[in-house]
């Protein structure tokens, strides 16, 4: 038996509540994070990801309590990210019970924090989250891809998709692997919330560019989207939110479906 593909429900947390948006905007309420965590854990989720999208630093301090509460009700691994800027932020999350810390904007602003985290807590704790968006304004020094006759490159966005960086996602992925990331959480901004499937070009290219595990994210609307991302890109894990939050499919139902389609999963 080889390693199974991981199915990861994602909980975007804002001011202590789980929320869900479209293209990172128009947010609505989806429930209590601790209750949802326990439910997904019991239903057979392989891991959980919490992204704190709370706006202000003041409100974000409550994340520590949330991490402790979640850690005490589940017995599967979980990652907490959102607003992590420093080693101290990461330490606060890990010492309160998270298994991994997700870092995104903070890593772009100060890439060394990836190495510092890796040295202190080990590579397995460090998840670099990359928000990627197709850019059709072609430039010489970027990795160019094409789909349906259109050419584009993948640009890294920060601050929850609000700010472009002109950094090439492929290059950034390779760099974070070198710096000590244990895993990459790769989100397509173009696909986020659309429910029409993962960005297969993006996922495939990044899987092929690095040797650390890749979590595909953004666009999952049905179990077949997961089947496609595993078959077409060899991603290690698939993250989804809406299909779990709104009860369209339970975690167990999704995994049974995947197994029927010959995707190795833990049941």
């Amino acid at each position: 038996m080889t390693l199974t593909k991981r199915i990861i429900p994602c909980l975007d947390v804002k001011n202590g509540r789980v929320v869900k948006g479209l293209h990172f905007e128009s947010i609505k309420d989806a429930g209590d994070p601790v209750e949802l965590a326990e439910k997904y854990s019991n239903e057979g989720a392989d891991e959980l990801v919490f992204l704190d999208i709370t706006a202000s630093d003041e409100q974000r301090k409550t994340i520590k309590d949330l991490v402790r509460k979640v850690a005490s009700v589940i017995d599967i691994p979980f990652t907490v990210g959102g607003g992590v800027k420093s080693l101290e932020d990461a330490r606060n999350i890990l010492l309160n019970g998270a298994d991994k810390v997700g870092i995104n904007t903070g890593a772009i602003k100060n890439p060394n924090v990836i190495s510092e985290l890796m040295k202190l807590f080990g590579r397995q704790c460090v998840v670099v989250a990359i928000d990627a968006k197709r850019n059709y304004d072609l430039k010489k020094d970027k990795n160019i891809f094409s789909e349906n006759g259109k050419k584009f490159w993948f640009e890294v966005f920060i601050y929850g998709g609000k700010e472009a960086t002109s950094i090439d996602v492929v290059e950034w992925a390779k760099k974070v692997e070198k710096l000590g990331a244990g895993e990459i959480l790769l989100t397509s901004i173009d696909k986020d919330g659309t429910k029409d499937g993962y960005d297969l070009v993006l996922t495939r290219e990044i899987v092929n560019s690095v040797s650390i595990p890749i979590i595909a994210s953004g666009g999952c609307g049905k179990p077949d989207d997961m089947v496609n991302v595993f078959k077409e890109s060899n991603a290690d894990a698939a993250l989804a939110a809406s299909i779990f939050h709104y009860q369209t499919h339970g975690v167990n139902g999704v995994k049974k479906y995947l197994k029927d389609k010959q995707i190795p999963v833990r049941l």
Partner: peptide, 10 residues
């Protein structure tokens, strides 16, 4: 193989 070995195994 991918290192770290990360995930659920038998």
């Amino acid at each position: 193989m991918k290192v770290p070995h990360m995930g659920w195994n038998n």
